[in-house]
Computed example of a mutant assay.
Amino acid sequence: MSARAWFLFGLVSIVWGTPYFFIKIAVGEVHPTMIVFVRTLLTVLVLLPLAIRRGALRPVLRRWRAVLALAALEIIAPFLLITYGEKWVSSSLAGLLIATLPLLVALLAMWIDVTERASGMRLVGMLIGLSGVGLVLGFDLTGGPAQLLGAALILLATLCYAGGTFVLKLRLSDVSTVAVIAAASVVAVVVLAPAAMLNLPATVPSPGVWLSLAALGLLCTAVALVAYAALITETGPGRATVITYINPAVAVILGVTLLGEPLTATVAAGFLLIIAGSWLSTGGTLPPRLLALARSPRVPRSRPLPDIGGELVG
């Protein structure tokens, strides 16, 4: 990948490991529809003026069907599903389940995009990753039907994200990513506004909730969605979703250290299987520079020559 792609990869990998932490804080005091509405509204306030200033909206609006699909698959449905899901599951488990994104992209590619289809070791990787999901769902969900429902909602959200990556690549890759996300966010705000107004908080939320909502809207949505869309355009859906190698680690670290969530052996084992499966399902290769370093012959280091008269001789 290019240097720009690696920068986008690092940015999105870290930033998108944090929303589950902020959602867990906010959902204790604010209704899920209100959380998603505020999160999306902040995105509109940041990105729409930029898109208008650049004159980039008109080409995007000509593809309004793709914009509607993107709003549904990348914003409205997954944001609501994840926020509702975190009422019953931990933030660290939510981040872990989102790590199935490359597996679901590989699965959908069988019918949507031949260039992203998994075969051979990629197919094996998909099966390994799915076994990790089964391990977590089968042995670590001790909260009963409610926790299982929460996990199912988050997996469904991940499936929506997977579908959205193909909308971006196949229908919107040649137009401004800022304008695309701005337009899709406007659609989301309009759709979510009625439900949000019916679920206003009974009391003024705490400062931590306000900060969490601001972080969700500005950092985890406005910045992250644009960077992620640009990353998909730069590398394709399969490679772009490799951000999920790092996302769950960030989510688990935040959940365990700051929210006191448990880290069980089953979660750790499932995490390793999902990451290994995701890596194999997206090609199973190292970054070009690391691969070149690994293949380069090792040159034995010689002992340093003595320093004579304060100057290095050699």
Score class of each variant (00 low, 15 high):
V38S: 01
S119W: 14
T83N: 10
L93W: 11
E116P: 08
D113Q: 05
F79N: 05
Y228W: 12
T257P: 09
A157P: 07
P248F: 03
L61E: 12
G125I: 13
I52N: 05
A152I: 04
T83G: 06
G236L: 03
A196V: 01
A294H: 13
G238L: 13
P32Y: 01
L213S: 08
L305T: 07
L200G: 04
T40S: 13
G283E: 01
G95Q: 14
A3I: 11
L61A: 15
L258F: 08
L93H: 11
H31D: 14
L170A: 15
A51S: 12
A71S: 15
F9G: 03
G143K: 00
A202N: 06
G138L: 06
L258C: 12
P300G: 13
A69F: 13
K169V: 08
V252S: 07
P145D: 06
G134P: 06
F271S: 11
V267D: 01
R117F: 12
A77T: 15
T233W: 02
H31Q: 06
I112W: 05
I112R: 07
I75V: 15
V38H: 00
L305W: 08
I25P: 00
A265N: 02
L47S: 10
T233Y: 02
R58F: 13
G310T: 05
L11D: 03
G10W: 14
R171M: 14
V38Y: 00
